Amino acid sequence: MTGFRFNLIPIKEPLFFIKLVEWLTAIFAFGSCINFSAENIVSVFCGDGKNQTLPAKFHYPFRLSQSPLIDHNATLCDRVVNTTYLTGDSSSSVHFFVGVGVFCFLYCMFAGLVYLGYMHIYKNSDLGPILDMVITVVVVFLWLVCSSAWAKGLQNIKDAVDSEGIAATVALCQEQNITCQVTEFATVRGLNMSVVFGYINTFVWALNCWFVYKETRWYSQKNFSQPGPTRHPTVI
């Protein structure tokens, strides 16, 4: 009763199918940001007509305060500018987001193994479905929180590397007759998609709560306790 019994029947059930969907959406969520690297091109317009450019590089895990914008005391507009770093640090929010995604990725594989090899134990025990239900509810909450945190962190990144953020970071850009403007924007489509998939994961895991709940004793006891239709004797 406790051994591994490989069975493909659960593949046809929603419980397994939705775990496969969760596994894929988790990959898309954290995979869209962990290898991300890009740069905006900042044009510095000097008052004497000279133009110079700076690369505003940003990459995972987005510790912008450690990303140099001006390095090695460069000369800009005939002025020596000290080493200057971008402003902000979104590493905590993106690490939280990626951590939840990796956990869900691993848990879906573990749950899929249980469904395919130990479904006879899963369905005949109270602990398995209840534990699955509790984890699913907790994951819904975690996806909602980490997606919201990462969405805010991503917005902070965008603000830090746009024209206003660069101008506020570089003291030279605040002088008269000197303008700093981002003239080439890197695409952040992958980061935007990571946030979208974060909220998709929230929805999918919330939907999964129903299918896991149907496997628990709470659902079976509720259906068992419901009275059947009352039949009245026929009067002749």
Rank of each mutant, 00 (worst) to 15 (best):
L69R: 07
F58E: 00
L76G: 12
S43P: 03
A26C: 04
N40W: 14
S65M: 12
F36Y: 09
C46M: 05
S43C: 01
D48R: 08
A74S: 14
G49W: 00
N40C: 05
I41Q: 08
F45N: 11
P55L: 03
P68I: 13
F45P: 11
A29I: 07
F28E: 06
C46F: 09
N35F: 10
V44C: 11
N51K: 14
S65V: 13
V44P: 09
A38Y: 02
L54W: 04
E22Q: 14
V42F: 04
R63V: 11
L54A: 12
K57T: 04
S32K: 02
H72M: 13
D71Q: 14
L76K: 14
G47K: 07
A29E: 03
R63A: 06
C46R: 05
S65W: 08
L69W: 10
I27G: 03
G49M: 01
Y60N: 01
I34V: 03
D71Y: 05
A56V: 06
S32W: 01
I34K: 01
C46G: 03
I70L: 06
T25A: 10
G47T: 08
L69Q: 11
C33A: 04
A29F: 08
G49F: 02
D78A: 15
E39L: 07
S65G: 09
I41W: 06
T75R: 15
F28W: 10
F62R: 03
P55I: 00
L54Q: 03
P61I: 10
F28T: 11
N35A: 15
S43I: 00
E22S: 09
T84P: 15
S32C: 00
F58C: 00
L76C: 14
C33V: 13
P55A: 07
T25N: 15
P55W: 09
F28Q: 07
V44L: 14
V44M: 11
R79S: 10
G49I: 01
F58P: 02
I70G: 06
N82F: 14
N73V: 07
V42Q: 05
P68S: 08
T75H: 13
D78Q: 15
T75E: 15
F30C: 03
N82R: 13
L69G: 12
R79T: 11
V81H: 08
V44W: 14
F28P: 10
T53F: 00
G31M: 04
S67Y: 04
F30I: 02
K50P: 06
L76E: 11
H72S: 14
C46Y: 07
L24R: 07
V42Y: 01
F36D: 11
G31H: 03
S37E: 12
I70H: 01
I34D: 02
T53Y: 00
H59C: 06
